[in-house]
Design a protein around this nucleic acid. Structure first.
Length: 318
DNA sequence: GAAGCATCCCGCCACG
DNA sequence: CACGTGGCGGGATGCT
């Protein structure tokens, strides 16, 4: 039941790449009162692991191809991660773990180490803005996207520099557990669950289907027509499927029913509007597809445990 | 907060 | 018979 997270780092490692996400997951344990996540740290050697912060961390484990496969493999960045890309023995171990793990996340320049194992070939990825070009040059098969906070492609997640790892961890937490818990953790750590500004819509990308999915276009359309009729019947007709068949395929592909998907899109957009615009609550409700202001309130209370007004007041910065 | 109504979801079964 | 598909019923959930 407990989700095992193995962080892998190479000295000198960027300490925040390791500790940021791990603090998110352990805070989730504390706030929920449950052992949701178990975290471990592996380095090229067990024991002291140098960081760029000038102090050492202690790795529980020595990186090895036959380490027990974690539920999530987390590859931290830092100068060491870029240098490690040339160490074939380390990369073989990392590649074995990355291949076997059901989910793999790289923070910052951890993407270099991950790319060196070959498992990012043909996939979209991001890294620290200063190193995006280098990543693209060094690994031409990786589709580097420069302006994303984090990117999901299949089971592989990559995130932008340093603290973007926290954003990524929060997004994973939100998906693993619940938006409520992710919000509580963000508040506990005094960070944004959704960064204000242009990046906030990435939460929608996180649940969006891959480009080749038959529902890719539809999910995009949903995002652009949140105020319209998004009933199962209407969506099914748009896809030229019977409602029953549409709902079944949708669930198989997206991991949730069409109703829930639409609901999450609307909630995401409402949060974004509240943080990024000055529109009144009624206007936000309207453009996000909530029939009444009351519906918006209920949805916020149910899923985020705060009212829309309070949400705006608490998380807005401008 | 309760009640009544709409919508969604999913097991079940029929059809080709 | 296996398989993909579509309709139905009713329990669950959301909305007013």
């Amino acid at each position: 039941m407990t989700h095992r997270i193995l962080a892998v780092a190479f000295p000198p490692a960027q300490s925040l790449d390791i500790l940021g996400p791990l603090e998110v997951f352990t805070a989730a344990n504390h706030l929920s009162g449950k052992a949701l996540y178990q975290v471990e740290l592996a380095g090229p050697e067990a024991g002291a692991l140098a960081t760029t912060a000038g102090v050492d961390l202690v790795a529980h484990l020595k990186l090895h191809p036959r380490l027990k496969v974690p539920d999530t493999l987390l590859v931290a960045g830092g100068q060491g991660a870029r240098d490690a890309a040339t160490r074939e023995d380390w990369m073989a171990s990392l590649g074995a773990l990355a291949g076997a793990a059901p989910r793999v996340a790289a923070v910052c320049t951890g993407a270099f180490a991950l790319a060196a194992t070959g498992c990012l070939e043909g996939r979209r990825a991001v890294t620290h803005w200063q190193h995006c070009r280098a990543l693209a040059c060094q690994f031409p098969q990786v589709k580097v996207e420069e302006d994303a906070l984090f990117i999901e492609d299949g089971k592989f997640f990559t995130s932008a520099g340093v603290t973007a790892g926290i954003d990524l961890a929060l997004a994973l937490l939100e998906r693993d557990q619940s938006p409520e818990l992710a919000l509580r953790v963000a508040r506990q750590l005094v960070v944004y669950l959704r960064r204000p500004g242009g990046q906030s819509q990435f939460s929608a990308h996180l649940v969006a289907p891959t480009a080749k999915s038959e529902f890719h276009e539809l999910s995009q359309w949903i995002l652009e027509h949140l105020a319209g009729d998004l009933s199962v019947e209407a969506l099914a007709e748009r896809m030229n499927m019977s409602p029953r068949h549409f709902a079944r395929r949708f669930r198989a592909e997206m991991g949730m029913g069409p109703g829930e998907f639409v609901q999450r899109m609307r909630l995401d957009e409402a949060r974004r509007c509240l943080l990024d615009s000055d529109q009144g609550l009624g206007q936000v409700a309207g453009r996000c597809g909530y029939p009444t202001l009351e519906a918006l309130r209920l949805s916020f209370q149910r899923h985020l445990k705060v009212s829309p007004g309070e949400f705006r007041a608490r998380f807005r910065t401008t």
